[in-house]
Design a protein around this nucleic acid. Structure first.
Length: 878
DNA sequence: ATGCTTGAGGAGTCTTTGGTTAAC
DNA sequence: AGTTAACCTTTGACTCCTCAAGCA
């Protein structure tokens, strides 16, 4: 029970962490987009509306509405502004456009108007506003590169979308664990299939009857239920035996879990692009679809279905989606509605061709579980006839390799893409067990190698495939992609993604990861690489999770060599010499891994960075004796001129107009001359370049204290100014100095002297402040008294401060005079006490100054008063 | 229509060690 | 007379990435 509470609190904490990460990203995005006014307009509604709306979708209840409303209002406001320019002012459109800054114009504000160009409704008050940007402008617009800001916004949108989809996946996963749903599913299951729950070592083959039964029972429709929560929607789908692809996939996961199988709900997160330009291009082709479609292109949305029912023909219908994906499956939609028929009629020729291609793709690439029992049986039999070793779930090894994406010439639409499926852990597979792709919607098993091709055919890039279990998640993209090098650049910063997934991975691993006994030892090299937490070098214990990590890593490391040269430009594993930068070299070269267009291919890990001697010095490294440069570059004209000029001055003849570069393997730790006899070794400029601690000569210390050099000079200690870098000022680079470098033995002396000096300066400062305060009090009181005297003398009482001075009568003036005099006296006494150290005495005895002890010096106007204790003070007489 | 190569151009990075004058 | 600080003016060459054009 306690463990359960702990677990819950941990889950809660993880959720909070994730929520925190998400919220940070959203807030950053909102902050970024708010002040953006016009420049964001060119992102048109795709950012302001689609992305804005998306923010509210998967958020916590409170945040949900707030963010959604905020973003929608913002988007609406933007639209209203733009509409207002046309609607209200009519012909003033051009004026408004002129009023926009050039940058606004270039940023593409016109783009928003352009959308209306084809709109017959753009006629206002009988006046048609022609908005046809010139070809030149259009060309300029398309040529406009995304600015850094655009990129940052795109990245933020990408991240937020990713988090939303992640949150959605968790919701679905949680619903799959619902005991009532699972019990209901079991109640529907024929008795013969119930036996599966007793199978301790399930295999892919053993799941066939179950998948077959499931795909017979449940149908995909375009209609989403009106249920508020996903759990209710799932219950509704179970009852009706039809639902959205997401619901049906979730039901399959619930069924697997009900049968004690370890199963994940897997989702292909089709996130908005990380790069702004891609979407811009997309937006042109998808303009027609955009109207009723957010970034959540799938009709299964994160908010109440009633609000987002995909009724527009422009929307990708699940009907066509179903057909797109399943034509080859012979799964007929028995509940086709008249609406679906309409949509069928609306299909373009391209769509039909597209569907045919999809059908061909699937029939050619995936194993089909036919509804026909006979065929199913035949399939099973054919599987069972495989030798045990070769019995694979993916029994289709047809020539149409998954590395050859399906032609996408027809239909530039991202519909029909496989988006939801399940993964079941089959411990009877592959000796140690493995995760098996199960697409119960289409009755497919082990089709992981085909998902990429199917997605590519539907113009969906396979960037994030995430498996959900135990309210956690794990990125399993590598299982489904064959060319990681193409996918990786389209994904968000790996560190950020790992950070987001870390707590979820833990939850997922806890839910799915049982310890398993390996029948063989893990290879030591691989073992180290994978950093297996639960495995031991000579033990055979690992977890499913770590084994899966190994499997995914192996997939990535064993990617085939790309066949075109461009692919090597940023390939994480391989490299062509021609794509090396000026400061790169392949070392050690070794035999090439292969060839591409005749050029040798090397490992990316063999690429070394080269630097000049001076650059290495900054890192505390120096080139070994007798090492020849690994690469010699020719200087540019300007560099050569500067160098030649310097050489003339120095009368050196060894200038060769080259830059010598060295690699890491040619270096050793920097050996600077040691400080001796209290003298700091300095460079030719009489200073020490302190790029890092490593650059300090041995026996010296860097004291970063302001104006400490003054003390060093005063104490006659040898020092060198510490140069810590450069800054650009007034068009030239200027060295930045911070503190000094002195011999270590002087460190304490200097620090003590510095502390003393600081104290002395502080005391001086304090004294100065006190004197200043005193002087100001004196001036203030003097002015009051003088004013009062004048007032008394000239009697009108209406000098320049009638509001106050009028009310002062002679008695008051005398009082003020007496008080101010006392105050001045008191301050002087205190000061005297402080100076003479008689503060303690003053506390015990209050001085009394009798008139008979007073004496007045007419010359200095000083009145000397004396107490009977002998204490005397001098007061300036007013 | 797609994919590859090439060249152009833009964005971002790297470069890098004052002189004069007035006030103190 | 020596020291300090403010002011002046506001790089530009290079690398690398991206995109369009041309071609197969």
């Amino acid at each position: 029970m306690r463990a359960c509470t702990d677990s819950n609190s941990k889950e809660q904490k993880i959720s909070e962490d994730l929520a925190h990460v998400s919220q940070e990203a959203v807030e950053k995005l909102l902050r970024r987009s708010r002040p953006r006014g016009s420049s964001l307009k060119n992102q048109d509604e795709s950012y302001s509306t689609n992305h804005g709306v998306s923010l509210g979708l998967a958020w916590g209840e409170a945040n949900k509405n707030r963010e959604k409303d905020g973003a929608e209002n913002e988007a609406r406001a933007e639209r209203d502004i733009l509409r207002g320019q046309v609607d209200e002012k009519g012909l003033s459109v051009s004026v408004d456009m002129e009023e926009m800054s050039d940058s606004d114009w270039e940023d593409g504000s016109a783009h928003t108007f352009k959308c209306k160009e084809n709109d017959p409704e753009t006629s206002i008050n009988g006046i048609t506003v022609e908005l046809s940007p010139s070809q030149d402008l259009a060309r300029r617009k398309t040529n406009r590169r995304a600015s850094a800001e655009d990129k940052e916004v795109a990245e933020l949108v990408h991240k937020v979308h990713l988090l939303c989809l992640l949150a959605r996946g968790r919701i679905v996963d949680k619903a799959c664990d619902d005991p009532l749903l699972q019990a209901s599913l079991l109640s529907l299951l024929p008795a013969r299939l119930l036996k599966l729950s007793e199978n301790r070592e399930p295999t892919g083959v053993s799941l066939y009857p179950l998948i077959s039964w499931f795909s017979n029972q449940f149908k995909v429709t375009k209609l989403s239920s009106d249920e508020k929560s996903f759990r209710s929607a799932l219950a509704h789908a179970l009852e009706a035996k039809h639902g959205t692809p997401e619901e049906i996939a979730a039901l399959s996961v619930a069924l697997f879990r009900a049968l004690n199988l370890t199963a994940r709900f897997v989702s292909l997160l089709d996130v908005v692009s990380l790069k702004p330009e891609v979407d811009k291009c997309d937006s042109i082709s998808q303009n027609a679809q955009r109207k009723g479609r957010g970034i959540f292109k799938n009709p299964t949305v994160m908010v109440d279905a009633q609000n987002h029912e995909p009724t527009s023909p422009a929307l990708p219908s699940l009907c066509s989606e179903k057909n797109d994906y399943e034509n080859g499956k012979k799964l007929k939609l028995s509940n086709a509605t008249s609406e679906m028929d309409d949509i069928q009629r609306l299909k373009r020729k391209g769509d039909v061709e597209f569907e045919m291609q999809m059908a061909m793709a699937f029939s050619a690439t995936t194993f089909e579980v036919d509804k026909d029992a006979g065929r199913e049986k035949a399939a099973n039999e054919s599987l069972s006839t495989y030798p045990k070793k070769q019995r694979r779930i993916t029994n289709v090894e047809l020539p149409s390799s998954s590395s050859q994406p399906l032609p996408t010439a027809v239909g530039a639409r991202k519909v029909g893409s496989p988006q939801y499926w399940a993964e079941v852990y089959c411990s009877g597979e592959n000796m140690v067990g493995k995760w098996v792709h199960v697409d119960a919607i289409n009755g497919l098993l082990g089709g992981e190698g085909r998902v990429e091709a199917a997605a590519a055919a539907c113009r969906t890039s396979l960037r994030y495939v995430v498996g959900f279990a135990g309210y956690g998640a794990k990125d399993v993209t590598r299982r489904y992609c064959t060319r990681w090098y193409k996918v990786a650049p389209q994904r968000v910063n790996a560190a950020w993604w790992d950070e987001v997934l870390a707590p979820l991975r833990e939850l997922e691993s806890r839910a799915t990861g049982d310890r398993i006994n390996l029948p063989f030892p893990i290879e030591s090299g691989l073992h180290e690489e994978m950093d297996l937490e639960s495995s031991t070098r000579n033990g055979f214990v690992a977890t499913r999770s770590t084994l899966e990590d190994m499997e995914l890593e192996m997939r990535a490391l064993s990617e085939p060599l790309p066949t075109n040269q461009q692919a090597y430009r940023n390939h994480p594993l391989y490299v062509l010499e021609r794509w090396l930068t000026k400061y790169q070299i392949i070392q050690p070269k070794g035999p090439p891994l292969g060839f591409c267009s005749g050029y040798p291919v090397y490992r990316r890990s063999s690429v070394q960075m080269l630097k000049t001697k001076e650059k290495w010095l900054r890192e505390g490294l120096q080139v070994k004796h007798n090492e020849l440069p690994a690469k010699v570059l020719k200087r540019t004209d300007k560099q050569s001129k500067v160098q030649a000029h310097e050489d003339d001055d120095c009368e050196e003849a060894n200038f060769e107009g080259t830059i010598e570069l060295y690699g890491k393997w040619q270096l050793e730790p920097l050996l600077l001359p040691r400080a001796a006899n209290g003298i700091v070794p300095k460079n030719e400029r009489g200073q020490v370049d302190v790029w890092s601690e490593k650059c300090l000569p041995p026996g010296t210390v860097h004291l970063r204290l302001p104006r400490i050099f003054v003390l060093a000079k005063k104490l006659e200690i040898d020092y060198a100014p510490a140069m810590v870098g450069f800054e650009f000022k007034n068009g030239r680079s200027v060295p930045v100095f911070d503190g000094i470098v002195v011999c270590s033995e002087f460190k304490d002396v200097l620090l003590e002297a510095y502390a003393e000096e600081k104290e002395r300066q502080e005391a001086e400062e304090r004294k100065r402040n006190e004197r200043e305060a005193m002087s100001r009090w004196y001036q203030l009181l003097s002015s009051i008294i003088i004013r009062q005297k004048l007032n008394n003398c000239y009697g009108s009482g209406q000098l320049d401060n009638p509001g106050k001075m009028d009310k002062l009568n002679a008695r008051d003036a005398g009082e003020i005079q007496s008080r101010s005099q006392q105050q001045v006296e008191r301050m002087e006494i205190e000061q005297h006490d402080v100076a003479s150290g008689s503060g303690a005495q003053a506390e015990e005895h209050e001085h009394v100054f009798l008139k008979e002890y007073q004496s007045f010096d007419g010359e200095s106007s000083l009145l000397t008063k004396q107490c009977h204790c002998g204490f005397s003070i001098q007061v300036e007489e007013f």
